[in-house]
Design a protein around this nucleic acid. Structure first.
Lengths: 185, 185
DNA sequence: GTCTATAAAAAGATAGAC
DNA sequence: GTCTATCTTTTTATAGAC
């Protein structure tokens, strides 16, 4: 299963940037054209399905990233606190230390919601599952571990919203620093 | 300062519902026309400034609600735990027990962000200030109280996002039940 | 694989009658 | 205060040349 259109991948970063900041409905083809440097017709060449196609491509890339970077950070050596801290570092980079919103959250607003909610849900479930596994491996009760992994994602998502609303990325940074101990407590 | 156009207020509920669920860019005048039963021209009669005008009106109503309902719940008798629980009850109703997103968060995406961020920030600041005041009155250190009030809003916003993404309003309900003790701990 | 040109639909906005 | 009609701009999408 080699990539069918490798070029598509090179447009993911600008697309991610647009969709996470403006949401599905706030992104027009003109904006995309400007951000990618491609004409509208070229965009439809790479993404015949239009915006939906683009979002799906970005989402698949994020899905892979989540597995290969965030979940991977949890699977390496160290105790639970160390592993969660390592994941936190990668998460912080991914969100530009609180400067950029989460695409998964952005997609849950507007006309795109129903279309992408199942995949978003699946991604968040796998993420929570990986966090819970670390806690269980560290000796925590299973039910509690699941509750705590839910708390972790709530804290991340909430901190991103608040940082954006208050115009203060430090809110996110503080939250991420507290996170490992908050979860392992 | 009597109301200049009392009729405007009657359109706030459907407008709130639209903007919180679809965000600024996801709401078109046609949708608004359908939801309110008013023709486009009539909408411009009440809101000469178009969508911006409507959002501003909704935001002002929310601002009043926040003061008269949420903050008011904190100002009544009882210890900190009781007061926070009372506020939580009103907040839960306002978000339909986790079924509906927060308009403040929805506005922080898309083209509307820069326009309304200052007012959103001011509203969240007053809210946090009121929570912190309760904690301080209950004997908590001021700096800690401010940290905890920030945590509270992070939990509320994050729980709303996660509930929506997972299609499970219970996530929000669980979070709100934990909240008073989490904050007073 | 990219472009220009263009079509078709939707969105934002206003004029003017009632 | 509401409507119909109309206008302008923007958006989505496609055809066809290079």
């Amino acid at each position: 299963m080699a990539k069918q259109t490798p070029a598509k991948q090179s447009y993911v970063p600008p697309l991610l940037d647009l969709f996470r900041q403006y949401g599905y409905d706030g992104v027009s083809l003109s904006k995309i054209s400007e951000a990618t440097g491609l004409g509208k017709a070229s965009l439809y060449h790479h993404f015949p399905g239009g915006k939906d196609d683009m979002v799906a491509t970005v989402l698949n890339t994020l899905d892979r990233w989540l597995q290969e970077t965030a979940v991977d950070a949890l699977d390496r050596e160290g105790d639970a606190l160390t592993r969660l801290g390592r994941m936190g570092d990668r998460i912080r980079d991914a969100y530009s230390h609180g400067e950029k919103p989460c695409m998964l959250a952005s997609l849950m607003l507007g006309s795109a919601k129903d279309n992408f909610q199942p995949q978003v849900k699946a991604m968040l479930e796998r993420w929570m599952g990986a966090i819970a596994a670390v806690l269980i491996q560290g000796g925590m009760d299973k039910a509690l571990a699941q509750e705590r992994s839910e708390e972790a994602l709530i804290a991340i998502q909430g901190a991103l919203i608040m940082a954006r609303a208050m115009g203060d990325a430090a809110i996110f940074e503080r939250t991420m620093e507290r996170l490992p101990e908050q979860i392992c407590r």
